[in-house]
Amino acid sequence: MPAIRCRNGAAGLSMSRLWLEGEAITVHLDEQGRPTAFTWCKRLHRLLQVQQRWQVDVDWWSTAGRARREYLAVTTVDGLFCVIYQDLVSREWRLAKVYD
């Protein structure tokens, strides 16, 4: 059984700090458009590895509640394990969870 299992998108992950609205972050991409680092709290966190990647499209019947996102569970060089996502409508990147 894989350690991080994505059932129906994101379920199964055990994280600790949760930002309800998501923390705004700046993500740095390489030439292929893959994330290589992100800036959070004025600090640059270089990605060590993308551990898992999944997409969600939920509550599509609700105009306000619809969410189309691409989630990434990543480890960083400085030792963070966190989940970030890109809103596929607004193209904004946000930090959803950090394991503490």
């Binding site: 600790s16 700090r17 030792g79 963070l80 394990f81 966190c82 950090v98 394991y99 503490d100």
Partner: peptide, 12 residues
């Protein structure tokens, strides 16, 4: 402990 050191898991 730093972030992702397990301190919040211990606390929970």
């Amino acid at each position: 402990g730093r972030t992702t050191s397990g301190k919040l898991t211990v606390a929970c």
